[in-house]
Design a protein around this nucleic acid. Structure first.
Lengths: 334, 334
DNA sequence: GTGAAAGCGCTAACAC
DNA sequence: GTGTTAGCGCTTTCAC
């Protein structure tokens, strides 16, 4: 910038004014400076600019999810990036792997880089350390909401989604419905269980410990559980898989046992090309794009001060796609 | 930091030394300073640090792909982030949408933020402007290689992958094989076409303009083309879909016409759960994780100066999964 | 072993 | 309209 000033024979500050489009510079001067900028191939240094600016804004935000490469998180990232990109704000996207320690380290790394705000799908049970790190900078929680309202939260309606799925199966005639659920330390997993139980209860169907399989951590465990359930003397006539990896496991077990089209199945969260399976997958769908979009809008609003209301909980409704697997009736006589 | 110095009753520089783990500080002093750091909740400002440091490193790298949310790009991003994260380097991931202008604007935005290097899947035909922006900082090209060797390139073996796919179909007995190919302005699409034609030629099968459908931009166009091909009086007995969106389109058309299991199909690039379709999908697979990993290793090597050899072209081989659709023989009498 | 002074690239505040 | 001075938070250089 000093070079540009020398070349254009003006002061540093004038160059600064031109580069930042500040008013009060003569048209002729602007031209001279711009010529010098072009000739020298000058590029602004946003890092240095941020250092001196009153607001200390870096025009960057952080995003921490469990695994940035998985489709759900990637779609959120895409939506956040698209919206932020319009305002020339960049996104630093990191994965926590679901580990609270890594999560905190990554967050530290981001705040040290002076991000203006953070969107996070929190792995840890306690969000206070995170807020301390943030030092007044806004944090928007996605997917899982904090125990205390430390920031806005944008979440899927997990409970209602599970209720809808369960009702759908009961309405198709099922009463012996198995539940495949994720790690119960995860809030969303618990909410989906609760929704299932509540919906069953609406129809006067009490919980059957035999049919409830919680803490299934991955596809393999879901596969094994489904296999066992369907091979038992008194198998369920339908399954509610409360997470998509578990759905895959269940589908494989059903396929392996040759029971396609004979066991009802509704999945929480869709899987890609779920319509192209031998029996189309009926699923509760989430809307990660919308989650990302709402989260970044909220965050930018907090950053620029246009939103000053107390932290809110914003619920993004689920969708429902009917494709066959959820409409299979129970066998006769059940 | 000034506050910490005051609190620990030492000079600024001593605090700096302790924070950066520089040698030559008395153990007792270190302790005093660390106590003050903890009490004040002091956090380093990496932005300011980078400003004064001799090397001007920001410990961040950029990644520009076509759409960070799509599975292929997301997996690359995941691999890059994982590897960079180990060294506490953050990744700024942006999408270009395949538009050369946006690409250049995003790149400018990244370099202004002082990234140490860039990994890019280039949309534009000319990479020189990008290199000018980089101002000596290393750039690693992925997926598509630059016309002139302006930086390392990490690419899939597109041609050989297409050759393998085609040979597989011919070996299964097919001679009338249709080609569904992407926008021919894209280098990778062209290479796959060339591979197809070369492999056909190996078996003495000349190109049949009827069966070659290029410039299919999306699933819908592939669907329409496949539908038309298979409904024609003299339909192909097999299809090579040179991109996964095109594969989906072809699968839908095959399904719609009730021709499942009667038309050979090999896909370039796998699609999620390709094993769970009525007829498993036989596919040439790419390895985006490996591409990302090789690219970031290369980039970090260039940044820290451990790699000083001329730009190289690194080819990541394709895989091949056989699941049924590619092993369907042609109907009798063909 | 520790500290004082200078300065990275830029902008705020105020002069002229 | 434009320039001058100071200083963001930190590291460098060099002195003690």
């Amino acid at each position: 910038m000093t070079d540009v000033a020398a070349r254009a024979k003006v002061s540093l500050k004038t160059v600064s004014r031109v580069v930042n489009g500040e008013p009060g510079v003569a048209a002729a001067t602007i031209e001279t400076v711009e010529k010098a900028v072009a000739e020298l191939g000058y590029r602004a240094d946003l890092q240095a600019r941020g250092l001196r600016r009153g607001d200390r804004r870096s025009q960057s935000v952080g995003l921490i999810v469990s695994a940035i490469a998985n489709p759900f998180d990637a779609e959120i990232h895409g939506a956040v990036e698209a919206f932020a990109g319009e305002r020339d704000i960049v996104v630093l996207g990191l994965s926590s792997g679901g580990d609270p320690d890594i999560e905190l380290r990554r967050a530290t790394s981001l705040f040290e880089r002076q991000i203006d705000g953070l969107i996070i799908s929190c792995a840890g049970p306690d969000q206070q350390p995170l807020i301390d790190l943030a030092e007044k900078r806004p944090v928007v929680f996605i997917d899982r909401e904090p125990s205390v309202p430390l920031g806005d939260a944008v979440v899927t309606d997990n409970q209602m989604g599970a209720v809808r799925a369960t009702r759908h199966l009961v309405t198709a005639g099922h009463r012996r419905i198995a539940l495949l659920a994720d790690d119960q330390r995860i809030q969303t997993a618990r909410l989906r269980c609760e929704g299932f139980l509540a919906a069953m209860d609406e129809f006067g169907i009490g919980p059957d410990a035999e049919l409830i399989r919680c803490d299934l951590l991955n596809e393999e465990m879901a596969h094994a559980a489904t296999h066992e359930l369907l091979s038992s003397p008194n198998p369920p006539t339908a399954i509610f898989a409360a997470q998509n990896a578990l759905t895959i496991g269940a589908l494989r077990a059903i396929h392996q046992l040759g029971l396609e089209g004979r066991v009802g199945l509704v999945s929480f969260d869709d899987i890609p090309h779920g319509d192209m399976f031998p029996v189309g997958l009926t699923a509760i769908t989430q809307d990660p794009t919308r989650i990302g979009q709402v989260a970044i809008e909220r965050l930018l609003g907090r950053i620029d001060g246009s939103i000053t209301t107390p932290p809110e909980r914003i619920v993004v409704p689920t969708g429902f796609v009917v494709r066959g697997s959820g409409e299979i009736p129970p066998p006769n006589g059940e």
